[in-house]
Design a protein around this nucleic acid. Structure first.
Lengths: 257, 257
DNA sequence: AGAGCGTTTCGGTGTTCACCGAAACATTCG
DNA sequence: CGAATGTTTCGGTGAACACCGAAACGCTCT
């Protein structure tokens, strides 16, 4: 950081000399409001929402939502896309999504209650959902566990796709070696706040999620992030990863450690 | 500690029906103030600072700093340790440090000026410093590059210590296999905002930094995060990783693609 | 004990900012 | 065109909150 010049001896305050952590404060300020935080959490589904939808979700007037979106877009966290009379917004990129995830995970209820038997909507979300662009919920965790168990993914020194894993993905028609070599990590762990275990994110996670939706393994329920695993999906998961229905519903699976 | 006081369930959302993203907003709010942001950035050196030091650093009155520290400690981002008339604070844990890092990296100046005209203090920091508990600056990047080159670390599918790497660390007297199996990732990439390249963090990064200081490879300059590589350090880096003085000063090392 | 220093509490000030309702725009549909 | 719908602009209000100085508190050292 180039903030602190040589402050040891003379205190040179009196006025803010340069802009050091001001950028950090500015960024954090975007998420420091509950309404904006709700917006971003909702947008973690990776899709575009309209301003009105977000306003209703957060329980504020459309005018208020409009102002918040100005801030979020202006801050680079969101991008917008006007279509007719609608203003669609989405998270700007995967880095921004990761930031929100990370914050949310860290902010997750510290005395997290193990058993959350919520409404039926909540259980559906807990079972399977998307998290920005990858699979989360019980489904995401179970798949990640299966990949680890079969040596397709290795966690003990990070989160890396193995050689076998590359072949496995290739068999699905997903070529991980041909990735655009961008900044985005190929395999990344995402710690979700309902399941307390990490699950696969990053390029590999996104590719897997896309494939799952394309191949009809699962489909979206309603207009939210929740997913439903189809029959073909169940069959595929069993064939490819040995995942049973009991695994998916969390029947006999307690705490494996 | 006595932290089990007020965080579990305040249950007074004032007006919002449920508490959804309010925890996120609360956490982000801690870093949404420039003074508090400066505090946290300074604390990224992993050491404990007194309230007065932080006040002078940020250019605010001691009374103001005191209040900010109350908030940061209360929010769980910092822990405090009273010693006589001093109030020492430090980042609560590596997770909190990672959070600040991540935010800072994302908030890094988007129109980042390539040329960092630095005072001598700045160049020293750019050359070698600590970042919470691991090595950063040119030194950190060079070591990480060397580890990658020699196959001790692998990045192309994450950031993982290889089998050879485990043996290499073991030869240093650092046993990475005996790690406490905690939540902390063994190997993690930390993207610093002066060097724009990732360098080794996580348990392995911390162990390496500790060893470097213990073995006298480098020593702290002044009271800040800056480090100086000693002669024995130079010799060790050359012997173990083939790192030359030119590498360290960044002489002929431009952009390796 | 008393001087010195770091820290905290207290009262007060000024600014920022989230929020709303109403009216103005803009787009789509009948 | 005129009605319905989604969004934005425009005041205005109220509540946080960052900040300071002064005084009080507590520890250390002479």
């Amino acid at each position: 950081m180039m903030d602190a010049m040589d402050l040891p001896a003379p205190a040179r305050p009196t006025r803010r000399p340069e802009h050091a952590g001001s950028r950090l404060a500015q960024l954090a300020g975007l998420l420091a409001d509950e309404t904006r935080a709700r917006f971003c959490l909702a947008l973690l589904d990776g899709r575009a929402w309209t301003a009105g939808e977000l306003a209703r979700l957060a329980g504020v007037a459309p005018a208020t939502a409009s102002g918040h979106l100005d801030k979020l877009v202006g801050g680079g966290l969101l991008t917008e896309e006007r279509q007719g009379r609608h203003r669609y917004v989405r998270l700007a990129d995967s880095a921004s999504a990761q930031l929100v995830e990370e914050l949310a995970a860290h902010a997750g209820p510290p005395p997290a209650p193990r058993s959350l038997r919520g409404s039926s909507a909540n259980t559906a979300m807990a079972r399977a959902r998307t998290c920005y662009d990858h699979l989360a919920g019980r489904l995401g965790v179970v798949i990640t566990d299966a990949l680890l168990e079969r040596g397709l993914l290795q966690q003990d020194t990070g989160f890396a796709v193995t050689e076998d894993g590359l072949r496995w993905f290739d068999a699905l028609g997903v070529d991980l070696t041909a990735r655009p070599r961008g900044r985005r990590p190929p395999a990344r762990a995402c710690l979700d706040w309902t399941e307390r275990r990490p699950h696969l994110a990053g390029v590999a996670g996104a590719a897997l999620c896309r494939h799952a939706l394309d191949a009809g393994w699962c489909e979206r329920i309603g207009s939210r992030r929740a997913l439903r695993v189809t029959d073909t999906g169940r069959r595929a998961l069993l064939d490819l990863l040995g995942i049973t229905d009991a695994d998916l519903t969390g029947e006999s699976v307690e705490a494996p450690a």
